[in-house]
Amino acid sequence: PIRFGIKAGVNLPNIIKDDGNNNFDTKLNPGFNAGITLDIGLIKGLAFTPELLYATKGYKAETSFGEFTQTTHFIDIPILATINLGGSGLNLVVGPQVSFLTSTKNKFDNGFGTVEQQFDEDSDKFKKSLLGGLIGFRYDINDKVDLHGRYALDFQKN
């Protein structure tokens, strides 16, 4: 059977920097994700579960001039397999993900004032589509409601 669903959650994004680009520390830039889900049962204990999500990512960095915050907005399409663990409510969720950058906002706060820049689909500055992967767990509280936790990492650089 095929079931539609919705999901929403808190995102705790950060970045992984290139070697040789580690002269500043970054912090989490908390955000959110929300979207629609599909659950297509294949065989007992295995389902194909693609999703269409809106998600914010990015990072914060303390510089000697103040705090820099970059918030990136994405359409994420995770293409997932959901594997039930031992007939319990616990499932392993794993698969690739394609992410499309829709906009980027940079905020700079030096303690006296704030400067903001917005880039909308600026393909010269930021990569517009990224391939990544995710792994996580989903706990089914009942037939309709679940709680889940995930880790996602892009394979390509932004």
Partner: peptide
Amino acid sequence: EFKNQVFSVGFGYKF
């Protein structure tokens, strides 16, 4: 250049 990584927690509802 950098790669995005995201920890997330949330809930889902299936119709």
